[in-house]
Nucleic acid binder design. Sequence first.
DNA 1: AAATTTACTAAACATTGTTTAGTTTGTCAA
DNA 2: TTGACAAACTAAACAATGTTTAGTAAATTT
Lengths: 221, 221
Amino acid sequence: MFSKFTTLIIKNMGIQERKVRNRKEMEKHVLDAAMKLYLKEGYKNVTIRKIAKTIEYSPATIYLYFKDKEEIFFTLQKLGFKKFYTEQLSVQTIKDPVKRLIAHGEVYVKFALENKEYYDLMFITSEPVFMFKDRKDWDTGVNSYDLLKQNVKSCIDAGFFKSKDVETTAFALWSFVHGVSSLLIKRGFMIPDEFKKHIVKGSLEILGQIINSKQQITINK
Amino acid sequence: MFSKFTTLIIKNMGIQERKVRNRKEMEKHVLDAAMKLYLKEGYKNVTIRKIAKTIEYSPATIYLYFKDKEEIFFTLQKLGFKKFYTEQLSVQTIKDPVKRLIAHGEVYVKFALENKEYYDLMFITSEPVFMFKDRKDWDTGVNSYDLLKQNVKSCIDAGFFKSKDVETTAFALWSFVHGVSSLLIKRGFMIPDEFKKHIVKGSLEILGQIINSKQQITINK
DNA sequence: AAATTTACTAAACATTGTTTAGTTTGTCAA
DNA sequence: TTGACAAACTAAACAATGTTTAGTAAATTT
């Protein structure tokens, strides 16, 4: 009876685990297919039917894994925020507050330009109209902004920046890196390719100047 | 024979003019209806059928005035650029280059926040996938950017800014005001309303600091 | 008055997201 | 192993979309 009992549990658990695994695999297939289609021709190109054809299932099956099309994009967005937050954490090892904040800005723009589609979904497009019923879904986004404010505060505490208003300064810095990123992503065609690197570099130098502002004034060249 | 000839022309011209007038009126009706729907619930809410119902014509009629839905939005975009350029021109009366450039930035953000939908169509959304076959369609956009570069150059010539690179500096400034504008428009819900004015003001002060950078260093408080 | 052009529309088409109702397959107690 | 049950999947249909076609009625020209 003991063996029978255990085998039952073991069997159940094995099956249950496989089922969870299968479900996650299926979800991933859908997300991968959606991202692939989005990459190729944008939001309009991502149809449930095309996703279904890509993963070789019927359209109806997709609705067993995602409530609707919106949820698919919302999930992709969440994945983007997760990756984004992880990459941003990497700068926290830098001790010097100014260097850290500058690196933070660089990582931000780097992420945006290396993950254009994610960035688009996260901060530009309004397509997957946000589902902000659960605040926790927005968590990594909030965490990222908190991280920025924390790093801004370190600089202000160390005597940098003209203003001592953390909130406003953080917003201004965010605006700057977001502006650089989104213009390059959405209006990149306006700028010749050979200029782009130069422009990013130049913009980041200006970012450095903003952060360093107070210090440089006292130096008085 | 003379009178017959002239009356013919006059008659034709009257009819022709009325036809042109009618056509323009109809186009305006369509555009107004589209904008009204867009305002209420965004791009997804603007359907040809709803526009048709609003203006009390059949859906097919709309296709006599616009090639497709895209062209409707493209036209709205062009109207936005026109308004945008006109408003920006107003700062050109300011003689002092620094004051002029700061005012330019203020007018930019002001336009964006007062014409959120236009700004969205012009610089954020990718929905009306751009029709850039004719460069002239993009003219007022280019003019606006040229205006900015001109104003940046005046400041650089007058000894402001750390960098002497007009192209990069102009892009950085554009990034900044675009970042402020687009974040407020698209992610405004993240910021309590009572902070918004404060944040805009603070950001514009930072903009002023960037522009004034060289000057302030030599002053050395 | 006849011919022609213009302004308009009803009806249809293909494509979309999504639901329903049902089938097939897998799981498990007996 | 078998019969009941649940899980996984799908064909077919639905309503809404952008757009086209083929045609009508009115305005205009000849």
